[in-house]
Design a binder for these strands. Structure first.
Lengths: 158, 158
DNA sequence: GGAGATTAGGTTATAATATTGCAATTCTAC
DNA sequence: GTAGAATTGCAATATTATAACCTAATCTCC
């Protein structure tokens, strides 16, 4: 299971290590972590809530970056390709990945109240994929699972 | 596992039984399967490919139905609530469900070539949900899984 | 069967998300 | 240093979804 976001933690470490992993991965793959791309990654990691592409635009603008939609979508596509971020389809939003290294299954729990997302172990989803391949003859190339509900904190609050 | 869409079948049966199930379910729940709603359901069932809301509009228009976006979105929302259709988030599209009866986990394989979707057994996804509840203390209310890849036919074609 | 409540549908406008196409620039490898 | 590739800037537009407000149909209960 990935790191538990519901435990108290120094979030700067999350951001810093995300950038460090990104840098390493880009070097390894011969990809370029340009200023926009790095800044988008940092902004996605600003907290543990999936962020919309259009939420990033004004923040980039403030900092003097170009801020037209294609800029942020291109950066996000780049990060998605490297598995540095995941897309939460049901929210049209993006969130940082804790164990990047090319595209891999996306499996998250998202709280409908606070919006925080917790990455989950995707082992069971792999089972579904293997089962479908065996029983139906399909070939699975991508997987995503999204669970929605209430996180521990928001249950307590209610 | 739900019916296998890759096997030859008389598709009229799919549509007819979908409508029959819908009628029964609506009766049971005291909901009204109005003409627009039934027609939208039939159109969603026109084939086994997820269909976009905006693809339905012109077809409804041809048949003299009102055809503004809210009309089709309302019909789709109604059908979603009853579990008669599912939303494929990664495609912004909708597909008929073979075993309706209020909202339930959505689990599909979608072919990236032909676009056909095959509903899968969601038992493993339930396991993920229970695991997340046990280990993280979250409460899961909704689930969706989407697998992407190549269906048997499109593998053969390639 | 009629009054009031509820549900469904019509209409217009607009919000939110995402992409296309092309020109300009920067980087990389030779 | 130059050709080719990757990246960015920019303007326009496509696609998906909802808001707000009103009218009409249907239900419920007496």
């Amino acid at each position: 299971m990935a790191q538990n976001v519901y435990k108290a933690h120094d979030h700067h470490v999350c951001i810093d290590s995300a950038v460090a992993r990104a840098r390493a991965l880009c070097e390894q793959q011969g990809a370029r972590l340009t200023p926009v791309r790095q800044r988008v990654l940092e902004l996605v990691w600003a907290n543990h809530k999936p962020v919309g592409a259009y939420d990033l635009l004004p923040k980039l603008a403030e900092e003097g970056f170009n801020s037209a939609p294609p800029t942020v979508y291109r950066a996000l596509d780049f990060l998605l390709d490297l598995g540095l971020v995941h897309r939460i389809s049901s929210l049209n939003a993006f969130i940082g990945c804790t164990h990047p290294g090319e595209a891999h299954p996306s499996c998250f729990f998202v709280c409908r109240e606070c919006g925080e997302a917790q990455e989950l172990d995707a082992e069971q989803v792999n089972k579904i994929a293997r089962q479908a391949e065996a029983m139906l003859g399909v070939r699975v190339e991508q997987q995503m699972t999204e669970l929605m509900g209430l996180c521990p904190r928001c249950q307590d609050a209610a």
